[in-house]
Amino acid sequence: MRKLFLQSLVIVASFFMTWLLVSRVDWMDIFNVRENTNRLERKLGDLYWEFFNKTEKEILDHEIVTPLDQLLSALCEANNIPRDEIKLHIVDREEINAFALPDNHIVVFSGLIRESENEAELCGVLAHELAHLELGHLMRKLVREVGLSVLISMSAGSGSPGMIKQAMQVLTSSAFDRQLERDADQKAVQYLVNTKLHPEGLANFLYKMSTTENRIPDQLFWLSTHPGGEERAMDILKEAEGMTIEEEKILSDDAWDELQAQLEEL
């Protein structure tokens, strides 16, 4: 019996030892997995943005793009994220929405900027979307809801417009699961603290959205894709509790007011 026990241990150990030894080799490099994944993401990102850009009006006004760019740059710089890899798009739409697309696209609707009371709130939303990108949530969500085979056929150019539209809706108007949201919130808190911004901004925005949900439901897209606002706001505040943050503004009050004024003129 003892002999059998030892033999079984040897078999189990030899399996795990082999696994350990085999994993010393960088198979991801040998099989070009990273490169192929990046290529797929790049193609999907281009496809999505092209499709979205056809129907929406992107805001390119210097007075609006520059402040947004400053906020995103500050977040990226403080968190060692290469800014030039993030493609920021501002879209002229009343809906309160912002979302990330594959290949590091972040899309912000003008309605969401208008709804933000200060830069901390807007940065909170940007940090949250940045966290989704950095944590690789988009591809996970797409694979889960659209399917890997559909994504590959779309990237190969054989996807129908209906298929692309449906896959687009997954990212723009369907929710991430709660765990992914929690992870993105936690990461966003880190990003904000590193940028010397109080995470309260993100919490306030989420709380505000959840309390106005019943008032103008059609416009609150960001809430429908990011559910559980009130509870998540509390979690963010709890996480930020006890943190000493030397807050520093990125934009001056005048620059913020100017941004809001420019949006009103649209």
């Binding site: 082999t18 696994w19 080799v25 960088d26 991801m28 690789g136 996970r140 694979v143 889960r144 399917g147």
Partner: peptide
């Protein structure tokens, strides 16, 4: 991987090679 994460990792590939070997 196919229906949830979509992320192929080095431990996964190594595991598959080990399984094929055994």
């Amino acid at each position: 991987i196919l229906f949830r994460d979509g992320v192929v990792t080095n431990p996964y590939i190594s595991y598959m090679i080990t399984v094929v070997l055994f």
